[in-house]
């Protein structure tokens, strides 16, 4: 059962956080003028930009009369990891990430409202330090809100892992790159916390069923915490940009 030493004897993690602590999240809405909505989000050292175009007329090949077509593109900057590497847009990893992003976000968007339309979501990872997918979902949610796209609820994503304290499993919230690289499981959850539904669930490695519940509930708790942070950012943004519809005429 012994895994890598992820917890110190005081119960702190490699970067000094407690097991149930998130990394610091800082975010900003409306960072670009050209797209309909945009957002920037930092989760620890993971930095992500998201831009939303639409809803606009769907391309003829994609057009659907049932609901809006959600089109995602995930890409990582050349300089986003410690090893400088040119990543072509269509590579396997970013294709998979785009699919996962689409799944999580189309669960949140009220797609039935806009038949024959399309929403394009572009996500660029500027710095990857673990949990790039989570940061992308959170940033894309903020960008969608900035664009005024109707959502059922916030879509938040969070990872969690497990460490061993003696023989006790202890779930770790919001896994960083170092912990990710040390091996061990990494559970990614994308959820709509306010309606208690899960949009995407993914796990790397194997985990005994007995411990799954602990890891899962910790990740859900993380999603709830993130929702509160995002909600606060949205309210601040609204207060900043609010103009009273004026009444004067000459």
């Amino acid at each position: 059962m012994p895994g890598p030493e992820l917890l110190s004897s005081q119960g702190l993690r490699l970067d000094g956080r407690r097991p149930d602590e998130l990394r610091r999240i800082r975010c900003k809405l409306g960072v670009f003028t050209q797209p309909d909505g945009s957002a920037y989000l930092e989760q620890g050292n993971t930095k992500v930009l998201a831009a939303v175009y639409g809803p606009h007329q769907a391309a003829k090949s994609k057009l659907s009369t049932e609901g809006v077509v959600v089109n995602c593109q995930y890409s990582m900057a050349t300089f986003s990891t410690s090893e400088r590497k040119n990543r072509p847009r269509g590579d396997r990893k970013s294709q998979e990430m785009s699919l996962h992003l689409r799944q999580a976000l189309s669960a949140a968007i009220k797609t039935e409202l806009y038949p024959r339309s399309q929403i394009d979501i572009y996500v660029e990872v500027l710095q990857a330090d673990g949990g790039a997918y989570c940061a992308s979902v959170n940033a894309a949610t903020l960008a969608l809100i900035d664009a005024g796209v109707p959502l059922k609820a916030y879509a938040c994503a969070c990872t969690s892992s497990v460490a061993w304290r003696g023989n006790h499993p202890e779930a770790l919230l919001d896994v960083g790159h170092v912990e990710e690289a040390a091996g061990g499981v990494c559970l990614t959850v994308a959820a709509l916390p306010s309606v208690d539904s899960i949009a995407l669930l993914e796990m790397s490695h194997r985990l005994h069923m007995d411990y799954f519940e602990v890891v899962m509930s910790r990740a859900m708790q993380g999603c709830k915490d993130i929702e509160i942070i995002l909600d606060k950012a949205v309210r601040e943004h609204l207060a900043e940009g609010w103009t009273k519809p004026d009444v004067i005429t000459i």
Binding site: P55, D146, V149, P150, L151, V234, W242
Partner: peptide, 29 residues
């Protein structure tokens, strides 16, 4: 509408015209 409650789907201000409830986003198409 969900669970017999009216919920907002965008971020913005509420406007009430008699019995009709709308929420207007800050910016949209």
């Amino acid at each position: 509408v969900e669970d017999d409650k009216i919920k907002s789907s965008v971020a913005g201000v509420m406007q009430r015209v008699n019995k009709l409830i709308c929420v207007h986003p800050l910016k949209s198409r």
